[in-house]
Every structure is written in C-alpha cells, then in structure tokens.
C-alpha cells in the first residue's frame, strides 16, 4: 500500500511542477495548490498511513502499550493545511489583481518594473 501512496505522491509533485511551468497564471495557482497537497500527503504517508487507534492512554495506565497512530505527523499536516490555505487564498487574490490592473495572464509578461513611490 505504501508503494502505491509513494507513486501517488510522486505523481502529484510531477503534476504540480508541470502546472507551475505553464504560461497562464491560473495554472501556476493550481500548481502551487497541488504541490502543497503533495507535500502534505507525503508527510502523512512517510509517518505510516495505516489504520491505527488514536493515541489515548487507557484507564489505569501510564503509557500507551498498543500501537497507535502518530499524532505529530497529523499535527504537522493540519498546521500545514491551514497555512497553505491562507497563503493560497492570498495568491488567488494577487493573481486576480494582477489580471485586473494589467490585463496579463502570463508570467513572462510581467514587467521588470521599478517602483516610484
């Protein structure tokens, strides 16, 4: 099962990189979103994506004795998802604004401008 997940992660990274290399800015956004998800899935898989009980200490015990799902990897992913969502939302607005003000859609058409204040 892990091998399948590994292939899926690799495939997602490939899709993300491919989309980022495309000309339109919208594909760039999609690429960034896919890349973020690929990284999250990779953390999930690398910590062992198996069906295991949550990390709860049973009554009367001091430590867990049975195998448990790793809570740290899940905490990392949760944090990363939230951050990724916020940043992506900002990027969407930025692309929209770039399109609005300069009517361009391609990364290479962005001017090498210098601000004037």
């Amino acid at each position: 099962m892990d091998a399948l997940y590994a292939v899926v992660v690799g495939f997602l990274f490939a899709i993300g990189v491919y989309l980022i290399l495309q000309r339109p800015l919208v594909k760039l956004l999609l690429g960034i979103a896919v890349l973020g998800n690929a990284a999250n899935l990779m953390i999930f898989v690398s910590s062992g994506a198996r069906r295991l009980p949550p990390p709860l200490i049973p009554d009367g015990e001091k430590v867990v004795t049975t195998p448990i799902a790793d809570p740290i990897a899940q905490a990392l992913i949760l944090t990363a998802i939230v951050i990724g969502f916020g940043v992506l939302a900002f990027a969407v607005v930025l692309v929209h604004r770039v399109h609005q003000t300069s009517q361009i859609d391609g990364f290479d058409e962005l001017t090498e401008g210098v601000g004037t204040e």
Binding site: L25, L28, L94, V95, V98, G113
Partner: peptide, 23 residues
C-alpha cells in the same frame, strides 16, 4: 502595477520554497 508584478514573482518563488521546506 510594478509592485504587483514584482510581488507575483516574490510570492511564487517563496511558495515553492515553502513547499520544499515543508516536505
């Protein structure tokens, strides 16, 4: 306009590097 263009490059590259950092 210039700020948006410069910002677009800055944001894109930093997002990609963030993904690398996270991975």
């Amino acid at each position: 306009d210039q700020q948006l263009a410069g910002g677009m490059k800055y944001v894109t590259l930093n997002l990609i590097s963030s993904v690398m950092f996270l991975a």
